[in-house]
Amino acid sequence: MAINEVYSVPKITKRANNFRVLLAKGRNWLLFFFIVNLLFGCSRWYFLPTPDEYNLVKAQQRAIVLLRVTSIVDGEPYKPFRKPLDSELNIGLALGSFETGGEFRWVTPLRFLSAATRDEGWTFFVLKPGTYYLAASPPPLGGVSVSAYERGFDRVPRWRFDVPLNAKTIYIGTLYISGKGQKLLWEGKKMVSLDKQGMSVLNEEDLAKKVSSGHIPEFDGLETALMKHHEGPLILRTPKF
């Protein structure tokens, strides 16, 4: 019998060793994914304004812009927003500004003041003073690229709003959206088309004041500047900051 055959390490133990090495190498990654998963599961991340943003708002170089979206799908109430970073999206929002030449950029992930306000359809943006355009669209279908989805916002009604100088918090209105949905496999519906004629902006100033004073009491004096339906050439203004 050859010496190699006698003293060579059996294949099974070799495989076991390889597996052990792999496990040892991948252990850190496994731990990382486990912690990330745990954080996303238990976290209460709403993407609140950061300390830097708070300072900029205090210095009146940025403003917290409050928006509410209420939606109805096939005659039934439809929650417009879900958890941030959720794989399923209910409604997509896009903003156009001077920097983008009025072209829409999909706002993702959206930011919320709390889980309760998110469920009621409240979201917010931290923006420089200037002119902005907002558009809402059903969530992207699978396989659609981001650029193709963003081009789709040009085909839906656009809403113009201004962020004035020296404003800290602004309420730009409640966007009412109705549309048609498609049943999901387990539960609920997903909006697939939008009723362009049925879109409107409502004034819920009192509710907005409650939300603002409840979650960002540092910035009192909420201003209301309702967004307006815009058609024709895009009007841009030079941003001040």
Partner: peptide, 16 residues
């Protein structure tokens, strides 16, 4: 025709 963008501050018409 009507421009695509009107840069109001600088009075500029943009056709893209």
């Amino acid at each position: 025709g009507e421009p695509d963008i009107f840069w109001e501050t600088e009075r500029i018409y943009v056709y893209k």
